[in-house]
Design a protein around this nucleic acid. Structure first.
Lengths: 347, 347
DNA sequence: CTGAAAGCGCTTACAG
DNA sequence: CTGAAAGCGCTTACAG
């Protein structure tokens, strides 16, 4: 009997047909309760587990979702964006909760996608996270669309198909940052982070930010914007460049927390005090944000909710049900770096 | 032809048998090159992908590994230990590199394990990460052993089966911390972190630490040890307790970086300066370590190497090959919190 | 080098 | 409520 029991082994021991075993194991109402009990007992004793390959093959679906993580190739490969890591955690949890398995894999945008996860029946659908340059990415999305792959993605809007994207209201997030800094009496602003169609999420944060400022008569042209991908180093470099230009900001909004931390390092290295000389606000609320010095004020994206929504919506897509909510409202988390909290407050 | 092409569709179009298609697709040398070329062309055109469920069922293996992450149930569920997150990244990469898929799932130690990943043929083997209380965990490991499941785990030694565990040389790590602090002239030490058979890794770090101190005549009894699980809060609480006892340490070795960060917060809140009053050394070198204030001196565990070794050794186990190296040498990363670096040094 | 055939372990109409 | 049978899409001896 070694070498994995099958449903035939159980059938033999229970004195019923294999069909009945199969039904009982899936708790079909069409099976006598006593028969079921007997079958379950034997299954347990034999340490029987349904062979997923066989049952998937027969059922033509896998009960598995695939998560493809795209990394910015410009970033050191050992460094995964902490925001995506948090998402990964919540996605995994959301899958487990719904009885699905999660297959995960890192991808380079440049490579041929292993989007054959669905074609090869390994997964019923795909979740995409991260995308590097959005212009290149969009093309790939259209391929998936053409192949009728079931997928959802984070952040990047799919033209004409809003249902495929779960995203933060980034504009609103940018607005919150702008309004908060204005309320603290700041007046010389800067934005650090890429802001073009290549990075739509950052771009929207930028737009919300300058929009908030414009309500106080501050024109976008008066707000320097420096390019930076989402790394500490990029934030650091961009800030040095900003300071070298001679502009003296008293408030910097960074497109991500990683950038913000680099911004603070650069400011401090150049002798500026955060927040008394320059207030800094980030975006994401990654774990590091609360441990930086000073602790970072930031726009939080609720990753637990985001992970849930990605999984739920993908499952609805697979089952051809209508899509639920797809946008998440950001929230400002006030800590020390913006100057709103008294220096004497604990931590 | 919609609804996924099969090898029969290709066979029909190529004018050969389905067997030949199957062979050609796996690049069997027993197939004429011209035939192969023809078959590949048709496969590509039909966007054909081998059905993994069918091929796995037939081959009786899955090309997939499962990663089970055990979380400490005492910790807030949204907070995953950053060290494990880093491991997760490197394990994923190591799998991808070897053409394997990775299934991931969170587990509670208390639950019935879904260790049926292998039994249900979803995975060829299992990687275990994290374990909460080791005494409870060990029992589960023995179950896996009894079921002849292919598995490897991180950190926890499996009695009589060293080949199943990949681990840091924790004693050596503790020794490095002790020696370094001694070399800086510190003399009143403390250790924060659980140190019993329930947390074998922390315990070994503790042992290495006191062993190093003993070379200078400092007895273990002179080194207070306070219990703390691996969270910032636990480190904070334990430190307050230590200080309340009246002991005035000038050097604290924390069993993990998360603990160390809590230790520093408590010290600073109580008016102690780090490192001039108290030097602090952590363990892990998680990303946060370099962003804390002051930046944390710590014992680094090479997660890239660790992930590689877990995957490689599991694969060897599956293929019944001998096991390779299973221990990783830790390395001290000197930053500001220990006082070895001049305050004027950048970041 | 190629084909006919068996079979991996299930699920699910179909029939009773 | 139960059973006999077909079939999901492959891989791999076996035979030629």
């Amino acid at each position: 009997m070694k070498g994995k029991a099958t449903s035939f082994d159980i059938a033999y021991q229970a004195g019923v047909s294999q069909s009945t075993v199969s039904r009982a194991l899936r708790d079909s109402p069409a099976v006598n309760q006593e028969t079921k009990d007997r079958i379950f007992a034997i299954a347990k004793q034999l340490n029987y587990k349904v062979d997923k390959n066989a049952s998937n093959l027969r059922k033509q679906r896998s009960g598995t979702l695939a998560l493809l993580l795209f990394e910015d190739p410009t970033v050191d490969e050992s460094q995964i964006n902490p925001f995506f890591l948090a998402m990964l955690g919540s996605i995994t949890r959301a899958c487990t909760k719904r009885g699905h398995d999660l297959l995960i894999s890192f991808q380079q945008l440049s490579n041929d996608w292993h989007a054959d996860y669905e074609d090869s029946k390994k997964a019923d659908g795909i979740i995409l996270l991260g995308y590097g340059d959005y212009v290149d990415y969009e093309e790939k999305l259209n391929q998936l669309l053409a192949q009728e792959t079931h997928f959802v993605c984070w952040g990047a809007r799919v033209e004409g198909h809003p249902e495929f994207t779960i995203r933060s209201n980034n504009q609103q997030g940018g607005r919150l940052a702008g309004e908060h800094l204005l309320s603290l009496g700041r007046s010389r602003f800067a934005f650090i982070g890429n802001a073009s169609e290549h990075s739509p999420e950052f771009f929207e944060r930028y737009q919300g930010f300058v929009q908030a400022l414009s309500t106080q008569g501050i024109k976008p042209a008066q707000v320097p914007q420096l390019e930076a991908i989402s790394t500490e180093q990029a934030g650091f470099d961009a800030t040095l460049q900003l300071l070298a230009s001679g502009y003296k900001p008293d408030a910097i909004f960074a497109a991500s927390d990683l950038i913000a931390i680099g911004v603070m390092r650069a400011l401090q290295q150049q002798g500026f005090h955060v927040p008394s000389d320059v207030a800094v606000v980030g975006f994401d609320d990654i774990p590091v944000a609360s441990f930086s010095s000073p602790a970072l004020t930031t726009i939080q994206q609720n990753t637990t909710l985001a992970g849930e929504m990605l999984v739920v919506n993908l499952l609805r897509l697979i089952h051809r049900e209508g899509i639920a909510q797809t946008e998440i409202e950001p929230k400002i988390i006030v800590r020390r770096s913006c100057g709103a909290v008294l220096p004497t407050a604990s931590f």
